[in-house]
Design a protein around this nucleic acid. Structure first.
Lengths: 170, 170
DNA sequence: GTAAATTAGTTGGGTACAAAACCAATTTCG
DNA sequence: CGAAATTGGTTTTGTACCCAACTAATTTAC
């Protein structure tokens, strides 16, 4: 009921014999060995798990990174935020509107450059961020447990390397 | 020009001093150490890179896994396909419609169970799959180069572990 | 100093996805 | 058997995202 489609086959595990047409176990072919595919699966699963964690504070996980980055970089512009966040500027527009409407951030016009805004957290925003940090910690601890402390650093490094280098390689 | 927003700060690297308000380098705080965040960044980057690769054959990367899974598992049902694919069944409906419309797959009603379809590739579908496989190979080779042959297997295993275990842990 | 180029942010159009409500076929049970 | 539960697939609704086009402010160049 929670997040059904990605847990796995979602209707396997029954011991009873099935004459169910074609599957039962699926042949992944080269996909089984394909990094991009598993990257997507892992990301989706992790994301969904975090949605569950963060539901308690009613803020989607996409908002969390945004909030944290603003907290860490008060006065940051929307463009810089988008870049740091790996999203398009236009994606941020409605998110920031929402966060502002909820009183979690402030957007002030910059005097020296009236095009841009500086973003900062309100007190409510800080409080919210603290709550979310607890969720995020729990979530990430869970991931740590799965990855194993030993491999964590290396794993992270590879992820960063991919984000930085892929698509520019050739 | 290619995929600008996610390469990184996207306007750093100039040696000239900038009085640009607040950023220049962004403080990621604990985000810098957060697996889920980098998982997302890496996945996004990888995905975008594959979009570039696959543009030549005019088929989005999401379709690719779908096509490959059908090719490997002729007669598979939509539900099983969705599960293997890590997507919701409802997500597949329009995708399969599209693939059928393009003459790449066939959906036949199953006589013994008239609710479900069996999916198979047409010859055109097989040909398309072959073309895509070339793109995918190139893309994955690129990822391999970034990851390094030595760590690849372990990296993949961790990804699979995450997909399988997260969200069920507690 | 004004025209052209650039930059910050928004808007509009389109894709990909999930969740919930739904329909029809099928299985289970009383 | 026939009602209830289950299952395969679609529809509807809503979110997150990108890209290309746009507006306004600012910088660059002549």
């Amino acid at each position: 009921m929670k997040q059904d489609s990605l847990s796995r086959s979602a209707e396997a595990d029954t011991a009873s014999p099935r004459k169910n047409a074609a599957n039962e176990h699926v042949d992944f072919g080269q996909l089984a060995n394909w990094v991009g595919f598993h990257l997507r699966l892992a990301q989706t699963a992790s994301f969904q798990a975090f949605v569950q964690e963060a539901r308690s504070v009613d803020l989607s996980p996409g908002r969390f990174a945004t909030l944290l980055l603003i907290g860490r970089n008060p006065g940051i512009s929307q463009t810089a935020l988008a870049a740091a966040n790996g999203r398009d500027k236009s994606t941020l527009t409605p998110i920031l509107e929402d966060l502002e409407r909820r009183g979690l951030i402030v957007r002030e016009k910059v005097k020296t450059d009236r095009r841009s805004y500086q973003l900062t957290l309100t007190d409510a925003g800080k409080k919210m961020l603290d709550q979310l940090t607890v969720c995020a910690k729990r979530h990430d601890d869970n991931l740590d447990r799965i990855i194993g402390a030993k491999d964590r650093a290396k794993f992270l490094k590879i992820l960063q390397k991919i984000a930085a280098e892929v698509g520019r390689g050739e």
